[in-house]
Nucleic acid binder design. Structure first.
Lengths: 260, 260
DNA sequence: GTGTGCAACTTGTTCATACAAGCTGGCATC
DNA sequence: GATGCCAGCTTGTATGAACAAGTTGCACAC
């Protein structure tokens, strides 16, 4: 898996274009060849090229406006969904040495929020795991996760120092994360947070609460991750082209109270 | 005009589907009609339907797997970053009364970071604006923005209580924001932050630093927004198909020669 | 030299079709 | 009754054509 783009032609083309941007062949600000040229060069139809460039646009690498050639917006490599959901994969890609330690695994009734997020009956049992994660030996994140009952046996069998729980679940039980939702805010460190992350109580932490679903939309876990301030920042790219519907504030904006 | 914005058929269909999901006609977990059925119902081709459902999928409302019908993942409209680009728009959609006040407008040389982000020569002049934003009278955010010189005149002409600076820029000068990049982390409140937001010093704040570009990739502004903890949470949805978010290591764990 | 307008170019949207790949449910078999 | 297989359904990928809408640069007029 990894770098194998598999059987889709448009993924191949997207990867090639991505590489040519990363390598500097198409520097930032440069204009890409037209879709017709790319289609001819790759011997595919324009629709296929559009899928490829659409993918790169959604990654924030290139931008487009109707009538003008596409331009290169940035040169950086973006991480995939897997790396977003997996602290371990992201850290390894960064070249950091990552280590984890599960501090406790308890089976207990779900809290009201956990039950709601996971879509289980209130009071159902969940597996609650507290984990500390380190980068280069330094503790940077406390992770408190509630796993639904149907994945709990897999998690219960893992060693305390397992690096990636989601990876292990995927390998051992074939359960793969497909959809994620993240809620990001700031909280003050509690006493347990402070002790585990070696910061003062009430110091600022970046909190990422996170619901993971399978491809079928079945919840797997509900997580509360707290990062030490300064250790991690989240980065989001967006463009008006990627979300045409939200760009309703166009030329003749009706500034009325209506949200439409 | 009304609902027919002269725009695209697929946007119309996407909006109709979105409404039918929001209204509960397609409850969470339900399977949507097949693409062929939708195409027949709307008298369009399957490709057009795919553009519509693809848009909803990118918003996190529905999910899909090859071979299985699309399922509704979520019913409420989430405020993604596409909408969060404009604090004013988001607040109005939430039904809150939003007010803003510019505290200072100063022209000064750009800091090293501002120059780097905005792509101007170090020491170039930028317009630095400090603003407090309130929801229902309560201060929730401090905004510190550096505008590039070529938009500064427009910003300088705005009244202190302008609700949306980006909107005003778009109307008065035709400069429309097209691409954005956001960096999100947590910081402790400085003394100015504490005074303006009426919180204690060193209490946690959610920081959103934000670079805005025109359609042509030309930087407009570099912003440092700080939200009072508990007032807002950022929500990001993603799927294996498109992942707009990534982590970035903070300065403490960055080992590269990134001299920003 | 300057400015305007147009023509060529480029992306956006849509159609109709075809086949590949994966899922579901029912039927046949054991 | 339980199991396995297959046929049909559904989404994913790809083609090629056509027109709409917006951009850019050149040629022409002044």
């Amino acid at each position: 898996m990894g770098s194998d783009t598999g059987g889709s032609r448009y993924l191949e083309i997207a990867e090639a274009l991505r590489q040519s941007i990363l390598s500097g062949e198409h520097p930032v600000g440069a204009r890409l060849p037209s879709e017709s040229d790319l289609a001819a060069h790759w011997s595919v139809s324009r629709g296929t090229v559009r899928q490829a460039v659409g993918l790169l646009a959604s990654e924030g690498l290139i931008g487009s406006r109707q009538g003008a050639r596409r331009v290169v917006l940035r040169q950086e490599r973006r991480h995939s969904f897997q790396q977003l959901n997996s602290f371990a994969q992201w850290a390894q890609a960064m070249g950091c040495e990552v280590s984890s330690l599960i501090l406790s695994r308890t089976t207990r009734p779900a809290t009201a929020e956990e039950a709601s997020r996971l879509g289980v009956a209130p009071g159902s049992e969940v597996l609650y795991v507290v984990r500390v994660r380190r980068l280069d030996g330094e503790p940077v994140m406390v992770e408190r996760t509630a796993y639904t009952e149907w994945v709990a046996p897999v998690v219960r069998a893992l060693p305390d120092d397992v690096v990636s729980i989601m990876n292990s679940i995927a390998e051992n039980a074939g359960i793969v994360a497909h959809y994620g939702e993240h809620l990001i805010d700031a909280v003050a460190a509690g006493s347990e947070d402070a002790r585990l992350l070696r910061v003062r109580r009430a110091s600022p932490l970046l909190r990422q609460r996170h619901l993971t679903n399978t491809a079928a939309g079945r919840p797997i876990e509900w997580t509360d991750d707290r990062y030490r301030a300064g250790s991690v920042a989240f980065s989001v790219s967006n463009s008006a082209a990627a979300a045409p519907l939200e760009r309703q504030a166009g030329p003749e904006v009706t500034r009325g109270p209506s949200g439409e």
